[in-house]
Nucleic acid binder design. Structure first.
Length: 564
RNA sequence: UGGGGGAUCGUCCAACGGCAGGACAGCGGCCUUUGGAGUCGCCGAUGGAGGUUCGAAUCCUCCUCCCCCAGCCA
């Protein structure tokens, strides 16, 4: 049971009340019902955490059920990716993996029941005619001319629909409710359509397929779902959900509750738009680290713990929302700060020669793997005469508040020595290509015996020992914070042309040799990085998961702003 | 203009007739061998108008604004 001190969202409130009152026989049973027609994204993660989380918290069960009622859009590969993503997020459906298609026969029998009760009929209007007969938001619809077919005729036609006697679109089965209902969903909704299409699970066994509105309440009832949670746009469908359960001899009576779907800044979460990004090549695939998909986030290095924590923090309500991406990034940093070992890597190398360091000498310096967790131990990092430093860590004419290396200035190299820049080497165009520095042998380990201080500590790698790597940096995929706000514009015009930057070669410390694909590291002072599956034996590829918080970047920005 | 929902700091979520609180973001201090992390502080909201009440974000009335619905998609 949940901690009595933390406030419950409205769904948990309902569940707690129902459990207390015995309304559901003391049972909680939820389900996560994705359609296998695309990859799961962070919005699904919210639903997954809600449904599975509820079951965990209240001692209930949560099923994984594929809502596979439209064979023209669904594929087995999506089923597999969805299972993998749910599992990766840390949830377990036990033996309760179901498919709406498992219930096709029961659904068919229930349809027969409705027909016999005079509550469903076969309609032979064309799709276009059905639309016209439906009326509009403000005007009632008209009864279909086929509405009064006899039970016998309906039974005959529906049986023959199943038998494959008719082409796609020739007939549909409709519920007989009320063509004048203010709620369009009640204007004799279509229950079954003819689709001569192979289904990824039932093959060619069926050529009529149930609609979502018909299949969902039956699936829920068959599985004994107590609380059927869905998003707000289905609120209008609840009267139909209830109508079907009231008119069918189902073994259980579930209830539907609706919550607000997740929106995030600088992000699109509609399947249509995501599939467009993939198919038109705006990203490298469903698992592109810039994608808000679970697989994209996994590849990017977002830990499942962080995603779950994010879902806890955003809460569950009924009002439209747009959560700032920064909150997700905060959750990622928070987890990785505790979990990710630290290493040194130089993304934009600037060669530095320590002119007074003995040629050919190598020292192994002890470095702490994670200051947040001493049990993670230490490692040895090689140090020698020629190093790479981060280009950004040197400025020939340092502005105010720039504390890093500059001509004649002394800084500390992490775990190593104080060094001082004595000469700047440039090419013919005047670009800085190399620095000559001296080191102070008295400062080994990074402390000066005379007590003198430096303002900055820089990361570095030894040129002779470092491993080459490719590093991919990611920025927001979209340039608009709230893409949905721009109603008249194509979201693709907001695609950030600089969302991916590939850096190569970068140099990483040798301890990273053989780092496992998917392993997550903090590159000191730069951010968190994750080994990409594109890595090969000889060349590591890293994705930047998220940067560290960077006050200097902020100062730079404000200095730029005040100048302009 | 039909029906269904929803409005609390910039953002997300609390407060369930009794001091509007937390988180993220932003800003500032302390600390620091990561300008990281940590830590302290500041900024900052009940859509509007009436009413009920000793007392209203919460109850009532009216108004305003936002979202969803006219697939044989889910």
């Amino acid at each position: 049971m949940p901690d009595p001190d933390t406030p419950l969202d409205f769904i948990r409130q309902i569940v707690a009340d129902d459990l207390r009152s015995g309304k559901t026989g003391g049972r909680l049973h939820t389900r996560f019902p994705p359609e296998p027609n695309g990859y799961l994204h962070i919005g699904h993660a919210k639903a997954i955490c809600l449904n599975f989380g509820l079951a965990q918290e209240f001692g209930g069960l949560c099923n994984l059920r594929f809502d596979d009622t439209n064979p023209t859009k669904e594929e087995m590969r999506y089923v597999e990716s969805i299972k993998q993503d749910v599992r990766w997020l840390g949830f377990d459906w036990g033996e309760r993996l179901y498919y709406a298609s498992d219930y096709f026969e029961e659904m068919y029998q229930y349809a027969l029941h409705l027909i016999k009760a005079g509550k469903a009929y076969v309609c032979s209007l064309t799709p276009e005619e059905i639309r016209q007969y439906r009326g509009t938001l403000t005007t009632p619809g008209k009864n279909s001319p086929y509405r009064e077919r006899t039970v016998a005729e309906n039974l005959d036609l529906f049986t023959r629909m199943r038998a494959g006697e008719f082409p796609d679109g020739a007939h549909v089965l409709r519920a007989k409710i009320d063509m004048a209902a203010a709620n369009l969903n009640l204007r004799d909704p279509v229950l079954y359509r003819i689709l001569h299409a192979d289904h990824h699970r039932t093959g060619s066994r069926w050529c009529i397929y149930p609609m979502y509105d018909y299949a969902h309440p039956i699936s829920d009832a068959l599985e004994g779902i107590t609380h059927s949670l869905c998003t707000l746009e289905f609120e209008d469908h609840r009267p139909l959900y209830d109508w079907l359960l009231d008119n069918l001899p189902v073994p259980y009576r579930p209830r539907q509750y609706e919550f607000a779907r997740l929106n995030m800044t600088s992000t699109v979460l509609s399947k249509r738009k995501l599939i467009q990004l993939v198919q038109e090549g705006h990203v490298r695939g469903w698992d592109d680290p810039r994608m808000p998909t679970i697989s994209g986030m996994r590849r990017r290095g977002y830990p499942p713990e962080a995603i779950r924590n994010f879902c806890d923090r955003i809460g569950v309500g009924k009002k439209d929302n747009i959560v700032e991406l920064e909150l997700l990034e905060h959750c990622v940093r928070e987890f990785l700060n505790r979990a990710a070992p630290r290493v040194m890597a130089v993304l934009r190398p600037l060669k530095v020669v320590l002119t007074n360091y003995p040629e050919g000498q190598v020292e192994y310096l002890e470095a702490i793997n994670n200051p947040e967790d001493p049990t993670m131990g230490t490692r040895l990092v090689p140090f020698s005469r020629v190093l790479y430093l981060e280009r950004e860590d040197f400025m020939e004419e340092p502005p105010k508040k720039f504390y890093r290396l500059a001509p004649d200035r002394e800084v500390r190299l992490r775990y190593a020595y104080f060094i001082k820049c004595v000469e700047v080497v440039k090419d013919r165009e005047g670009n800085v290509v190399e620095l000559h520095c001296t080191y102070d042998p008295e400062t080994k380990g990074g402390y000066a015996p005379d007590g003198r201080q430096v303002k900055a500590t820089l990361h570095w790698v030894s040129a002779a020992h470092a491993l080459p790597a490719e590093v991919r940096l990611y920025e927001r995929l979209l340039t608009k914070v709230n893409p949905a706000e721009e109603k008249n514009a194509d979201f693709k015009s907001f695609i950030n042309p600089h969302s991916l930057m590939v850096l190569n070669p970068c140099w990483v410390e040798p301890s990273l040799a053989g780092a496992a694909v998917g392993s997550r590291w903090q590159f000191e002072r730069l951010g968190y990085f994750c080994v990409d599956p594109d890595s090969t034996d000889g060349a590591l590829v890293f994705n930047r998961t998220v940067t560290l918080k960077d006050p200097w970047a902020r100062i730079k920005r404000s200095q730029l702003n005040t100048k302009s």
